[in-house]
Amino acid sequence: MHASLTADGALGLDGVFRRPDPRAALSATPASAQQEADQRRAAWMAAAQAGDRRAYERVLADSLPLIRAAARRQGVATDNIDDVVQETLLTVHRVRHTYDPSRSYDAWITAIASRRAIDALRSHGRRDRRELHDEQVLDMQTDHADAARDTEREQEARRLRAAIATLPPGQREAVEQLALRERSLAEAAEHTGRNAGALKVNLHRALKALRNRFHGDS
């Protein structure tokens, strides 16, 4: 039923080239139950696109196992899976208009999660290569090895990411490009197509908004 509803598969290309079912690795749930769950999530996402907050929160919560499964399949370490989940949720929020309710929701979100997992693997690879193994440097870092502080820092990072997600698109883009990805103004301008002045103004406004939010929280 679902496959016959493809909106633009006039050549049937996606039908012919369909990937293995992304949910197959999740559980031994019968195919019909998986299909029902997919259709349920598709209906929720369609409602979310129309502005239904309850449906949106449901579909995102229901997607967490799918995202984790996709991250695991790409080989993301258990410690980093939650980062992939957060990045995927933020991406889904930005690109929710690209979902076509006549097609599989699970295939859509699995593709996004897989891409974010690959990004996470690359980013960790880069970080690992940059790491210094000098003993002196390691000595200097001993006070950072405290697990409780690491956890606290991770939680703060997640709170910050959630706050960034609520910024207007231009400000969010400036924070992501200049602060999170540590790009120079020129690089960020090249990537976003915006001029350096606009990026600077957006970053300034975003930092002000975040400062207000966190001062308000504390």
Partner: peptide, 11 residues
């Protein structure tokens, strides 16, 4: 944490 983010996105 995930549910907090979902709440923020929902809002």
């Amino acid at each position: 944490n995930h549910h907090r983010l979902i709440d923020a996105l929902g809002a």
